[in-house]
Write a protein that binds this DNA or RNA. Structure first.
Lengths: 216, 216
DNA sequence: TAGATTGTTAATCGATTAACAATC
DNA sequence: TAGATTGTTAATCGATTAACAATC
């Protein structure tokens, strides 16, 4: 019925983790209340923008006092659905895949990788970070059986589309894609790209621009 | 003198790697010419947007024929400064740092990590992916001596600000930050954040939204 | 109470999309 | 030539920023 809920703008969505990281630290320091202005200063943002962003959580602040830190923190976690973690499968046990699998803090970010897959005979059967690597052949079937919703793709570019299709065949809903390729998927599938090259391009371009300017 | 060059919009900058990945593949397939429409279809973009994006490279297409693939590809690489690679230092040899150091393809993306640092006695002196891990004590000095411009931060959140400062003291210009914390730096320092949590938040939020909708 | 800070409504800014003349 | 595709100029859209009344 309440279908008029406006979905959170993506730029806001990308800032929410920043707020969460900051608030977590302040909470550990024993702070109880915080104003949008303080947050803005810490994160180099505009305080109006901070209030707009925080408004998506539904938390209301108190004039003169600011926001209740604990309440705001919980609400931010809830907005990203980080207050409970979703099971996920990862495919591609190269260096990046292994690193992601070894990352201890993903459950804090709502993600729980419970199985890893690869098609390299040498890797299948081995254990990484306490998780046994399974054959990619079993991927579609296991997604189906275990009702997995999230798939993480860390295979090389030329295998990524095939893996995506296997995931979709199994009924996956959301794909976190690290392979440097655009995945073609049906419109109802959520794909979030996380290629390192994306932010690296911004870095190298800006650096070159800066150096060009300095040499002028 | 030509100080009126408009800098490339950040959304465009983030799409350029996509074009590069696609064009690389097409080039290997032997394609010589390509239209903005074809690119748009492959990447799920609007063809007008593709033309606007490509315009930043300065390459002009031919009506009816489209763009020369080779020329466009080189120009895109050049725009991101990926046609030559910049030396960089990496600090923090945890699982993510090791994975990044082991990544073979960074030189294709304009990045050449030539040394790694850590403050863990156990790791110092060890070799990862052919690179010896050095003590963080030497970081500032070596950046100074070798005129390093890019620093990669993969240390835990509570150490990141300190490492950033050491880099800046050494004269670093650009920081690629994987630590889940906002770095406070002087305005002339370029910081590009690459926290995995950023895109993960988008994923978990959208998935939760989708599931909520399906259950309705 | 006075003043700081909130949340909302309006203005600005920049990116995306549309319209269209130029041209290979 | 006719038609497809380019590049540019204008319109739209959405996010950021500004202004300000409400209130603890």
């Amino acid at each position: 019925m309440e279908n008029l809920i406006k979905s959170v703008p993506e730029p806001t969505l990308k800032r929410l983790p920043q707020y969460i990281h900051l608030l977590k630290k302040l909470k550990e320091d024993g702070i109880r209340q915080i104003s949008s202005n303080t947050i803005a200063n810490e994160l180099n943002l505009d305080s109006i923008q901070v209030r707009k962003d925080l408004a998506v959580t539904g938390v209301v602040g108190k004039p003169k006092l600011g926001f209740d830190l604990e309440e705001l923190y919980s609400a931010l976690l809830h907005t990203l659905n980080w207050d409970n973690s979703t099971d996920a499968f990862l495919v591609g046990m190269g260096s990046l895949g292994s690193a992601i699998l070894g990352y201890k803090t993903f459950p804090e970010y709502g993600l729980n990788i419970i199985a890893a897959f690869d098609n390299d005979e040498e890797k299948i059967g081995q254990s990484f970070a306490g998780t046994e690597v399974l054959s990619s052949d079993k991927l579609t079937d296991m997604i189906k059986r275990m009702h997995i919703n999230i798939g993480v793709i860390t295979v090389p570019a030329n295998e990524a589309q095939k893996v995506a299709q296997q995931m979709i065949d199994g009924g996956i809903i959301a794909i976190w894609n690290y392979a440097p390729v655009h995945l073609k998927v049906p419109p109802e599938i959520i794909v979030v790209n996380a290629q390192l090259s994306q932010s690296l391009g911004v870095l190298t371009h800006k650096l070159a621009e800066r150096l060009r300017y300095l040499n002028l």
